[in-house]
């Protein structure tokens, strides 16, 4: 009986959260074109998020490139297909591994930071102070941050992909003596419109999900300083789960339109 009560209560809070998150998303789209546009704050957030995540994204991308190449090379060599290495690595990085891993890194880096910052502003009444001074805190704090992540994540993914490919080239160059021109010629020959465009479009949705979840958790943070930690933590967990769901939907839709 106790188990059923727990399941009922967990299901209720799950669906309540889904409903609230949906309303929050609708409110974002309603407020996004409202004046004032808060362009200065949007620019500041874009700079902060892009600049502060760049180093982490570069390191992650570089290691992805190294690891994939090192792991795959022996298998391809076994089948005498080592020359396929640039094509295989570029397709897997651009289509899937680059976007999802860099989005997960950004969910940890940016999502937690938004959750903690807004959570802290909520519990110290800074959001209330903003509202009392005649500012729409949702527009100033939430809309700018969500837009900033949505715009910055695709850029970070493109940079991360490029660095991953460069990392892969370094391994190929050291082990197989392949030149930079030859390697990247093969990379660009292998990549098609159907690889780049859907992968880039889905990163906008990844950014939107990270921003919405981070802001939602922080904006409605409760229970003092403990709540701030919980907001930051759950922003990362929920956003990461959501990224996989969006990724599955994106791949499914891409398969329908581009026949992968």
């Amino acid at each position: 009986m106790h188990i059923f009560t727990n399941i009922k209560s967990a299901s209720k809070s799950f669906f309540t959260e889904i409903g609230e998150l949906s309303f929050f998303t609708v409110r974002f789209f309603k407020d996004v074109l409202k004046r004032p546009l808060e362009l200065k704050e949007l620019g500041r957030q874009c700079y902060n998020m892009g600049n502060r995540s760049l180093f982490l994204v570069c390191i992650t991308g570089f290691i992805i490139g190294l690891v994939i190449t090192l792991q795959t090379r022996p298998t391809l060599m076994e089948f005498g297909a080592a020359s396929w290495m640039p094509s295989m690595v570029s397709i897997s990085i651009v289509r899937e591994i680059g976007p999802i891993i860099i989005a997960l890194v950004c969910a940890g880096r940016i999502g937690s930071s938004i959750g903690a910052e807004l959570g802290s502003m909520r519990v110290t009444e800074q959001i209330d102070a903003m509202e009392v001074s005649g500012t729409n805190p949702f527009k100033y704090l939430v809309v700018t941050r969500v837009l900033a992540v949505t715009l910055m994540l695709p850029l970070l993914v493109i940079i991360g992909d490029a660095i991953a490919l460069y990392g892969s080239f370094l391994i190929e160059n050291s082990k197989g003596n392949v030149s930079f021109t030859l390697y990247f010629n093969q990379v660009f020959n292998a990549l098609e419109f159907a690889d780049i465009i859907p992968a880039t479009i889905k990163t906008f949705f990844f950014g939107l999900a990270i921003g919405i979840v981070g802001c939602y958790k922080g904006y409605y943070c409760k229970k003092g300083t403990a709540g701030v930690g919980k907001a930051a933590n759950s922003a990362v967990v929920v956003a990461s789960l959501l990224l996989f769901v969006i990724d599955f939907i994106a791949v499914f839709v891409t398969d329908i339109f581009f026949d992968l």
Partner: peptide
């Protein structure tokens, strides 16, 4: 309401200064 709020000053218990 926003216009009216400009005529009301509110000093919060914890000051609520924008810490950034």
């Amino acid at each position: 309401l926003d216009i009216l709020r400009a005529d009301i000053g509110f000093l919060f218990q914890g000051s609520a200064l924008y810490d950034s």
